[in-house]
Design a protein around this nucleic acid. Structure first.
Length: 698
RNA sequence: GGUGAGGUAGCUCAGUUGGCUAGAGCGAGGGUCUCAUAAUCCCUAGGUCGGGAGUUCGAUUCUCCCCCUCACCA
């Protein structure tokens, strides 16, 4: 029976690019959405850029653009990145919209009407230079416990202590470095302990199917000691100003209007973006999707870092507003790379673009994620070796290869291929295929992707095994051979259907090759429909992934690590503002193998020209001869150490020649040079004049 | 420190009411076919089931203590 669903992924903050950590969630959600659509369900997949908050306001100002323009740039970029990974949103809107403004006020008013909002005076650090209150991430200082300098206002990255920003020793503003003062401000708080709202939250958390048990336990732990929630922020802020005269001059906290963005973006989709036949006026949309008891499911896919907002505050907001509560909230873990947190200094902070630039097929990442995803809250580890093994073993050697084998054999047969009656091939592929499809169907629904993909692989195993045992190439046109090849072709149809949510493009091509077979996945689906089979084309192939290719993901990191920085350098506000955990890397001994070193291609380069980069204090643009027909352009942050760039011309320096190109100040840098020290006491590494440009350094 | 989740073969994980010689996939080692992208298929690998104690005829599966990892919170 067809169901109506509203599915969401968390809204990415419009302050940076999409990275592989984001993609875990969007791939998980997209696979589910595609699966449900194939099943015939009516699915709307809503997402948007989370566009408000202090970091965006500050970074936009720094960039000299309006917050709206700033946000739109990232919104468009994110949407495009997602598209290239096959994430097929119905809409990718923004929380800075008129629809969201309307919804946000409505929710605020509803909370107020329920008597849940009260005023409380709080002390905060205030920067008199910037004339603003400083959020935790915008004040730094010395940890009051372990005395490590330059720690954020909420937590020490060295000793892990969390504290109040007011406890920092020698606090300073992360924007202008001046010393903040303490000021008080009146804010709006939501009383979540009031019995009527508390019982709603508790009831939802304990509701069947809403949260998996381990997540439920976590949330119940919070409920035992529930704090009230501050829902306003001081100006300057980028967001919706509170209309309530009790809180004049305040703005709604970004975490209030962000989840509301699910509703407003969906409303916008149905009102303005949906195909003609699917358009709905806002009132109609609300009645069909949001009203209590509406015949529609609402499912929110989120990461574990934002569970509190979604599992505690969000049900309260929905309830107060008189809307239905979510039907399911799948929570996934974070992404690690080679077993560790993504880290810029280690080069494992991989953006979607870096992945795409490496030349790897985005669908391979989808497959790897899916093969490691379960409904649980486990972290997914992108081990580069594991990634390569998984793809090569499953997709290349097993599945694509089976299609290739079957096609080659069938292509040699004359005419159409029908199933000869009464032939026992010794392998019940029909039963195997139908069972695999059923197993996968149940598994996708429960987000047990690992199980679903296991079932598909088992089916392909059975196919390869049958070929191996029956050897149809020995008597291609015999009845047993024809029967087996017929069954195998049908089994491939099952593979295409069951794999399509994860690999839509590959499976689309496979289905086309099988003669435009449908990829719909109705209840009880079986590819054994009795129709003759005929390949329309060669099935799609998948190139094996080699180690060099995946190594590029890391080698292509923006900045090669030199020495692991002991203390995070005074990061720019844009870095402090990112939602990505920027915890200091534990300093491991970091012993590497020779092969690791050999991947870095160091060459001698002769500096042919050098000049300052306009509007950049630290950058020099060099033309360097590294033994290639054309000199390379290299942009390096060494200007402070070389006030006269001409001094560099004629020097023989050492260049990392296989570093992925990267744009700096609009100039594409085709490598980096080695230098010792920190500016201004910095020196580029040079070699004797007797060494020719292009010579390998090792 | 509090709360929660985990710690099973090199890796990723299954093990739903305690019980046959603890399983799968990948990797690794050996063998094999040759239709297929040097792809397949077969065999093998012996992991104190984090450590200790207890309950029991018997515990990876129950209880207690400890160690370690992760997340959230103060």
């Amino acid at each position: 029976m067809s169901q109506r669903l509203l599915v969401t992924s968390a809204l990415p903050y419009a302050n940076g690019s999409i990275h592989l950590g984001h993609l875990v969630e969007y791939v998980q959600t997209d696979v589910y959405v595609r699966f449900r659509k194939a099943c015939g369900d009516d699915v709307t997949y809503v997402c948007a850029a989370d566009s408000h908050g202090t970091p965006i306001e500050v970074n936009a100002a720094k960039a000299g653009v309006t917050p709206k323009a700033f946000v739109e740039k990232y919104r468009a970029e994110q949407h495009e990145d997602f598209r290239r990974f096959g994430v097929d949103f119905s809409t990718y809107y923004t929380t800075d919209s008129e629809e969201n403004r309307r919804w946000a006020y409505r929710v605020y008013d509803a909370l107020k009407a329920k008597g849940l909002v009260y005023k409380k005076s709080v002390e905060q650090l205030y920067c008199e230079t910037d004339r603003r209150f400083l959020p935790d991430r915008f004040v730094k200082g010395t940890c009051p416990v372990c005395k490590t300098p330059d720690q954020y206002g909420d937590v020490c990255e060295s000793c892990g202590t969390t504290y109040d920003p007011r406890d920092l020793v020698e606090p300073y503003c992360a924007i202008c470095r001046s010393k903040p003062v303490i000021r008080t401000s009146d804010h709006a708080y939501v009383n979540l302990r009031k019995p009527e709202v508390f019982s709603v939250i508790e009831g939802w958390v304990n509701g069947e199917g809403h949260l998996v048990p381990s997540v439920r336990e976590q949330v119940k732990g919070w409920l035992a000691d529930l704090q009230d929630w501050c829902i306003t922020r001081d100006e300057p802020y980028f967001g919706f100003p509170v209309k309530d005269p009790d809180f004049a001059g305040k703005y709604l906290y970004v975490w209030v209007d962000a989840p509301i963005g699910y509703l407003s973006s969906a409303e916008h989709y149905f009102a303005a973006e949906a195909p003609e036949g699917r358009r709905l006026a806002p009132a109609e949309f609300e009645a069909r999707y949001l009203a209590p008891g509406a015949a529609s499911r609402m499912e929110h896919f989120i990461g574990k870092d934002i569970l509190r907002f979604h599992a505690v505050f969000w049900p309260a907001m929905l309830w107060a507003t008189g809307l239905k509560l979510p039907d399911r909230m799948p929570v996934h873990g974070h992404l690690t790379v080679n077993g560790e947190k993504m880290s810029k200094s280690r080069g494992t902070f991989i953006t979607g673009k870096t992945y795409l630039d490496s030349g790897l097929d985005p669908e391979l990442l989808r497959y790897f994620y899916a093969s490691n995803l379960s409904p649980g809250i486990y972290d997914v580890d992108l081990s580069l070796d594991e990634f390569r093994n998984r793809v090569n073993a499953d997709l290349v050697k097993r599945i694509a290869n089976l299609a290739s084998r079957v096609h080659a054999l069938v292509a040699k047969l004359p005419g159409e291929l029908s199933r000869p009656a009464g032939v026992d091939t010794g392998h019940d592929l029909q039963r195997a295929a139908e069972r695999a499809v059923q197993t996968a169907r149940d598994a996708y629904r429960e987000l047990e992707y690992r199980t679903a993909l296991r079932a598909v692989n088992d089916l392909a195993d059975a196919g390869n095994k049958a070929l191996q045992e029956r050897k149809p190439w020995e008597a291609p046109d015999s009845a047993p051979s024809r029967a087996l090849l017929y069954d195998l072709t049908k089994a491939l149809h099952a593979v295409a259907v069951a794999l399509a949510p994860v690999l839509p493009r590959f499976c689309g091509a496979l289905a086309a090759a099988l003669g435009d077979v449908p990829l719909a996945w109705p209840e009880g689906f079986t590819p054994f429909d009795g129709r003759p089979v005929r390949f329309a084309a060669k099935p799609p192939q998948i190139a094996p992934v080699d180690a060099k290719q995946v190594a590029r993901l890391i080698a292509a990191a923006p900045e090669a690590p030199k020495a692991p920085a002991k203390v995070a350098k005074a990061a720019s506000p844009s870095e402090t503002a990112t939602k990505v955990s920027a915890k200091a890397a534990p300093p491991p001994p970091g012993v590497i193998q020779y092969d690791d070193f050999a991947r870095v291609e160091l060459r001698v380069g002769l500096v042919k020209a050098a000049e300052k980069v306009e509007k950049a204090d630290k950058l020099l643009k060099l033309a360097v001869d590294v033994g290639e027909p054309e000199a390379r352009t290299i942009v390096a942050g060494i200007a402070q150490a070389y006030p006269d760039p001409q001094a560099l011309v004629g020097r023989r320096i050492v260049v990392v020649a296989n570093l992925a190109p990267r744009a700096l100040r609009g100039i594409t840098s085709q490598g980096m040079l080695l230098a010792a020290g920190e500016p201004p006491n910095l020196s580029v590494v040079t070699v004797a004049d007797s060494i020719a440009p292009g010579t390998r350094v090792k």
